[in-house]
């Protein structure tokens, strides 16, 4: 039996509607952004979440991260041993806008998590060295985020999340601001890092190709629910645009997203 890392049960979430008049809003049945969503994610699984813009992908991620509270339902971690009630260092997050601390150098940003955990200086230095080498930014270790390019910042953001050695990684469109070439490199790097530490990854993306390239399993969301939940039965080495099997998957998911 697979180990259930994340279990989402009957999850619902709505936001107050500011657009409609305050009194009338009570007459309209409220619209849930996440609507009775159920999902199980196994340990060490790489999940990609697809869906058209505004379907609630970021909301789902923020709920798992513990930044916002659900209206109904719950999110359980480690076979139901823990319940998500707030952010935790066990659930690392990589943001679309990198969210590096501008007053810390590359080194200090990557070492932030270990430092918060009061690890000793040598251990922190060791962790920082390891991840800074992994993302190939050794020469930039003393630089501030403002001195880096967009792709470099994103790499530091990923290293920072990995350096904290969280066993769950939540990523909200981390590569969408990058050009195609950098993006392809980052995808390879991400798979490489993940291959070593085997965290459970929930990766949100707009790009169907990216999802099919990275995931063990792709979830398509719509109307606050899971529309389809499909494993990619194909070794990662064979996932290339000119492989017809790859394109079959892409077209399969395209069908779900364009229906909307």
């Amino acid at each position: 039996m697979a180990y259930t890392k994340i279990e989402i049960r009957h999850l619902s979430k709505h936001y107050e509607d500011f657009a409609t008049g305050s009194k009338k809003a009570q007459d309209i049945p409220r619209k849930n952004v996440i609507d009775n969503l159920n999902l199980k994610i196994n340990a060490r699984e790489f999940i990609c979440v697809l869906g058209h813009s505004g379907c609630g992908k970021s909301t789902l991620l923020n709920l798992i991260a513990g930044y916002i509270k659900p209206d109904e339902g719950e999110i359980l971690i480690n076979e139901g041993k823990e319940k998500v009630t707030g952010p935790s260092p066990n659930r690392g997050v990589v943001f679309q806008e990198h969210a590096l601390f501008p007053w810390y150098t590359v080194e200090q940003n990557i070492g932030f998590g270990p430092k918060m955990a009061h690890k000793n200086k040598e251990t922190i230095q060791q962790i920082v060295d390891e991840y800074i080498t992994m993302i190939g930014l050794e020469e930039y270790r003393k630089c501030y985020p403002d001195q880096l390019s967009g792709g470099m910042k994103q790499r530091v953001g990923i290293a920072r999340a990995f350096a904290n050695e969280a066993d769950i990684l939540l990523m909200d469109e981390p590569f969408s601001a990058l050009d195609e070439f950098t993006r392809a490199n980052m995808q390879k790097e991400l798979l490489k890092i993940w291959g070593r530490n085997k965290a459970t990854v929930v990766f949100i993306t707009h790009s169907i190709e990216e999802a099919v390239l990275l995931a063990d399993r792709v979830i398509v969301m719509g109307e606050g629910k899971v529309v389809t939940d499909t494993g990619i039965e194909m070794p990662r080495e064979e996932r290339e645009l000119n492989n017809p099997k790859f394109m079959d998957y892409v077209n399969y998911f395209k069908g779900y997203i364009q229906d909307k």
Partner: peptide, 18 residues
Amino acid sequence: VDPLLIRSAKSLGGSELQ
């Protein structure tokens, strides 16, 4: 203060004081 930075600090294990 950028709320995103507070979120990332908390997800990296920062306590209220940190």
